[in-house]
Write a protein that binds this DNA or RNA. Sequence first.
RNA 1: GGGGGAGUGGCGGAAUCGGUAGACGCAUCGGCCUUAAAAGCCGAAGUCCGCAAGGACGUCCGGGUUCGAGUCCCGGCUCCCCUACCA
Length: 859
Amino acid sequence: MSQTYEPREIEQRWQSKWDEERTFRTPNPGDDDFDPSRPKFYVLDMFPYPSGAGLHVGHPIGYIGSDVVARRARMQGRNVLHPMGFDAFGLPAEQYAIETGVHPGEFTRDNIDTYRRQLQMLGLSYDWDRELSTCDPKYYRWTQWIFTRLFDRGLAYQAEVPVWWCEALKTVLANEEVINGRSERGDHPCERKMLKQWMLKITAYADRLIDDLDGVDWPESVKTMQREWIGRSEGAEVDFRLELDGADPLTVFTTRPDTLHGATFMVLAPEHPMVPELVTDDQRGEVEGYVQAAQVKSDLERTDLAKSKTGVFTGAYALNPLLDAEDPAARVPIWVADYVLMGYGTGAIMAVPGHDERDHEFASAYDIPIRQVVAPSGCEESSDACFTGDGVAINSGELDGLETAEAKAAAIQALSDRGTGRPKVTYRLRDWLFSRQRYWGEPFPVVHTADGAVHRVPDEALPVELPEVDDYAPAADGSAPLARATDWLNAQAPDGTDAQRDTDTMPGWAGSCWYYLRFMDPHNDVAPFDAEAQKYWGNVDLYVGGVEHAVLHLLYSRFWHKVLYDEGIVTTPEPFQKLFNQGMLTAFAYKDSTGRLVPTDQVDVTDDVGVKRETGETLEQVIAKMSKSLRNVVNPDEVIEEYGCDTFRLYEMFMGPLSDSKPWNPRDVPGCRRFLDRVWRLFVVEDGADPIKPALLQDGDGGSQTEELERHLNRAIKRIDDSFGPFNFNTGIAALMSFVNEATKAPDALTRSQAQRFVLALSPFAPHIAEELWARLGEGESVSRAAWPVVDERYLVDEEYELVVQIRGKVRGKAMVPKGADNAALEESAREAVGELLDGQEVVKVIVVPERLVNFVVK
RNA sequence: GGGGGAGUGGCGGAAUCGGUAGACGCAUCGGCCUUAAAAGCCGAAGUCCGCAAGGACGUCCGGGUUCGAGUCCCGGCUCCCCUACCA
């Protein structure tokens, strides 16, 4: 029998064994084999949406990283929860269903099978007994259950709101799903419409969502994005009385009440409800035309493309509440302009062109007066320029001389006294639009009675299962597919009266809001999860995923988690203690002289130079995202087929720090395979008959070379350990490579103990070859449950080291010196090392840094 | 416009505290092995000058601090990611 390294055979054999023996099964509190003395560790990947295309090599880089962490934690004696599941409701499956008539559930199931197969091929140590899928009624029963808790608390409500309507998708989309007026999925145009929708009151949690970020170990950039997304801003609401009999005052929001005296006009959003009421007859035609034009403009046109601001005068005037009505400055004209958005604040502003860039731009365009009311500190001059910073109030009556902060407070006080204003905190965050007129999602667990009341479905009647329909497409009028499931539609309210089910479904984000909790107890059919299990597992210790979820998923999950915390069913205020974002995996692409990217399959690459096959033109190598159009997408199946899964895992970890974005280079992959070949040959004589070198089956203590190897091994394990902090496994793997290089040069010096510790240190990265060598070393237990090797500090220090000798900071010599030598001895050795180079030089100063260098400073 | 990150050989990337720049891997070149090739093993290799010994220059650019700067400070350039009229 040949003893060559055959990764495919080894990997398949061990994967089957792990599967059969449930090697990575994680017991819960209460299970027979649960050991409460071990500390818990919950490592979670952001679970994937299983698309039809399968995984590409960029997908698993985070999964491999978290798997490496999970495997080491297990070897360090922790109870490791490391599960995987699928985010399975959502638009792509439904679009596919509409196009093909295939049930989205069937399509999704097939995709999940592909994903599961691909994930299992990677040798990831998941506890597959805990696998879940958000479209499974056993799962979404509890998603609905949580929704009813939100409903009971008044956090879920229906309202007529302006929403993004996507005609192509025939559904509403959340603000976040619309980018520049086009749908994020599919890039279809979208428009604003008023529709009755389910909303979740996430704004009630805005402050807690900001404040509790302080307690989690997340990248600062993600915390910043969340804070900015919530966008808390403090200021005041100010009421402007209109010069119009019987009209309600016009309320605006401002963060700068101190600049109220500088308000020379006001602006309403085109959608503002008071526009038709206050516009004068003279101006009506022009205003209506403008409002209509704004309505059909996409957001893209209203923002990006519109470099200059536009607007029209309504003919109406309002009165500044801080000024005497007789004061001519109190009378401010009201304009309509689309740079003011209905969705923020009150949809109306007081415009202070002296101290706001946008207002300044508008005033300049329409010749509106600019009044300076804040002077930069220490400078009494005022100018026509726009000053947006803090300073001292001027031209502001009673506020004059006050610093900006004081002036704000004084202005708010003055307004409050007059009953024309009040302090106000506004958030950029809107309530969460939570319904879709689609089929493939969780039905709402509510029924509507004829009297217009909404009743939530009692717990025991959950889940409200999705009915079968024969057409998944929304109707042309925008009514949901579920409206056609007539039998299903008719239900009863809890008191027995006739009722209708809700025909909307929840958005794709719903299921992912709490899946990390279900993993703690995924088969529970009397509760979303057992209280004991949740208490033990707590929150996620390490959550690994892409930065693209920095706001939406992570914000929504945090919101639901806090609601569950208030319900008393989770014990931590935050769901994810530490967050880590893996970098994006890119690929090389090639640009021709016109700067166009050439599809990779039309490029020949030799010696890192790309040449366009047809024309022979030399191309410039650049780094680009992997994309279908560039044909530079690499499929993991092929890499694993050619080199093996251990090589694939090792390469992905060896490329660079896990958080960095870096290019996949197919030419580098064989280097990692070569390393594993060398590892193998260190243990196994390939053309021999023994499964392992016989010397490795006995304890031995070797000679001086063994001692030297021991240093290398301890250094390598130290670097591996260190790499788990910053997730730069590339440095740890490099140290393992160095060890193998040394051991290969002295093959007889390697002892059994060293061989074992090396295999253990390698095992998180290349678990299959590690299991195989571990077994061949005669060990019966899986390497994944063996104890992680401990560094022996004594081997990290050398008794002799190389002292660098510099003259004026330039390296001029080296000397081997014993550790612990005193400064005088070091200087003496240094003088010897540089010899005559110091002759005739005047040494002004000698810098001695023990363990490092000696530097002679000469004139 | 705002926020975040990054610029080191032909390429991916190393370099605890300011202390030998380029670990490890790829590609390249040489040697050994072989009838030959592949594989493997051993070795060279930042750039420039030099036969060599050796020297000069080198971490995006320009200044500064220091005995000594990839690392610290000031100014500028380039690239990537996110975000975008939020009053």
